[in-house]
Amino acid sequence: MPPAEMSCPVVEGVRFSTANHVLEGELAYPEDRTIPLGAVVVAGSHPLLGGNMHNNVVRGLGDGLAERGWATLRFNYRGVGRSEGPRVDVAHHLAEFWRTSHVAGEMDLWQDVQGAVAFMRSVVDPSLPLVLIGYSFGCALLPAVGRAASPAALITVAPPLGKHNYSDFMDSQCPILAIVSEDDFTLEQPRLKIWFDALPEPKRLAQKASDNHFFRGHEPWIVETASAFLEEHLP
């Protein structure tokens, strides 16, 4: 794959169907390329913790990788923004969420990512590489999607390893990049080391202090890191 060139992306508002709902998203792709380098789906953070397609990390990756030649899709999970589906009854679940950081049914959101992948397969040549990116909670949804989607690469940004089961990443058949902020409140270095060491090759761990879990002002670094990883592993 040739080195990505920077170009201004086109961003389109789209709606696509999943098994149960119609979700809204933003599809970004380079204006001056007939064929993108591949398709990227970005799964955002937890809907109760600012997880929507306008989040700085999600938007940064969507736009940034589109500038570098990829067709990207960021979207709102069911019940978020104008995506259809039941909204989480926050008032009802708040006490539990405060204690556990979980709400019932949250792992079902992998189906939303699966719907996003199917949409991208329908608008981008399916023979092109598919990259799945998760940010925070979104990382935990990737293995379930990856089993059927056969991604060319997985990228996890700030995976909260202590909050979900990340053992399924061990079965991955593709290169994995983990981008981590060293001052992340969810980060447990020993747990990260154990998890990362156990991942199959090829893999890469990129770390630096990046505004706790939130990467505000560090979005370009994430994009550069991801782009470089994809250039290296998806020639």
Binding site: L48, L49, G50, L94, W98, S101, N212, F214
Partner: peptide, 26 residues
């Protein structure tokens, strides 16, 4: 929203970030 204002860099958080995000949700 408070969370969006934070992500946009208009609000800064000191201390326990997780509690801060949950409290912002509340």
């Amino acid at each position: 929203t408070a969370q969006q204002a934070f992500f946009d860099g208009r609000i800064d958080i000191e201390g326990d970030a997780e509690k801060a995000m949950k409290l912002a949700l509340l």
